[in-house]
Design a protein around this nucleic acid. Structure first.
Lengths: 202, 202
DNA sequence: TGTTGAGTTCAACGTCCGTTGAATTCCAGA
DNA sequence: TCTGGAATTCAACGGACGTTGAACTCAACA
């Protein structure tokens, strides 16, 4: 029964403008490199307004990053279907995400995690509990070697994102997505389902 | 005939102490994240002394990073020998470098490149002109697809470094080097010598 | 012994940062 | 019409940063 009075709408676009500017800034410079002040300026707004809407810089970052990256949205599509084409489906979906606005958010996480303590923890926990664990559960892999397989997949995907979207080495950065899919998918396929050395005794 | 007078030795260890502290700091936090002030403190020294020895922060970073990473030192050992074991030799050498003091320098570059404009340029040019080009020249690869092969290799190696040494996902981070070699080498081998999709027309 | 110059420190500069609290504007509801 | 409260701005805080220039210390040479 929320009875409210006072000015409500104002300019509802402002909030979105700030979010857009923040996504851009975090995606290009990472958490530490981006500044509330430049975000505010590029949204045509006072820095204090950013705090008014989103609280601290950390909270703003999470807003940018948690909303568009939800593994439940695309994981089923990758894991369902014929098992010997998981590689193709994973790489294709992955590139699709990175070429969308969500890719900017993903870049923000990747960039930040390289030089910032708490974002690297964020990334590690996202990867292990949100992605790798789900994958392991849904494909019926040998439970002993499954975590190893998942980690190997992560190395190839992370390196691909880094070289193609951040460091931008050629000719990879300008290569058509389908060429990348065809080139990289066999690696993923082998990591998931191919022969591997025996996992270390531990 | 350099005729010099005045105090010479003082404490010659200081310079090395600063370099060690800088390598540590840059390796852990990247270029932007590390600060001259904490480097100085952790070397037991005044910040101004760092400038006295090394000039600007940029110059100090280059000192840390350019000296220990010289591809001419290990590339020949990788490229020489039987062609169907390039993968094994590359991955093994790569892990060896990352587990040495030079690995700290490599981490510094990788971390910095994710959020800093001029270091990403540094990394890109190092990869393309110092590594990839040499590899392409020394192995006799099809000149059209060679750059594509080299870039694919770079994705796998960069992702491996990132996940094992920076994000530290398990069980990869604690896996024995030889297990990693056995698991990843076939990927490298295929990128170098295996079948690939036809390079895009360009 | 006196001078020189390298090693080292101190204090300060200007700049950018995240954040805060008070002030202003102005619409929606009473 | 009056007014509460959301939207927005302004000015300032305290802290961290890279860098600078002047000062001090003191071993080696003339």
């Amino acid at each position: 029964m929320a009875r409210r009075t006072g000015r409500r709408p104002g300019n509802p676009d402002t909030r979105e403008a700030i979010l857009a500017a923040a996504r851009q800034a975090f995606g290009e410079r990472g958490f530490d490199g981006a500044s509330i002040r430049t975000i505010a300026t590029s949204a045509g707004v006072d820095p204090a307004l950013v705090h008014h809407y989103f609280g601290t810089k950390e909270q703003l970052f999470l807003e940018i990053v948690q909303v568009p990256i939800d593994p439940r949205e695309f994981l089923p599509g990758i894991l369902a279907g014929s098992k010997d084409e998981v590689g193709v489906r994973l790489v294709r979906t992955f590139l699709g995400v990175w070429d969308s606005p969500a890719g900017t958010a993903a870049a923000a996480v990747l960039r930040s995690a390289m030089s910032n303590d708490w974002t690297v923890r964020l990334l590690r926990e996202f990867l292990t509990t949100q992605i790798l664990r789900r994958v392991v559960n849904q494909m019926d892999l040998d439970p002993v070697e499954a975590p190893h397989r998942a980690a190997l997949v992560a190395t190839q995907m992370a390196g691909l994102a880094m070289m193609r979207y951040i460091v931008k080495i050629e000719p990879l950065a300008s290569a058509p997505a389908e060429w990348v899919v065809a080139a990289v998918a066999p690696t993923i396929q082998r990591y998931f389902a191919g022969p591997l050395p025996a996992p270390p005794a531990k």
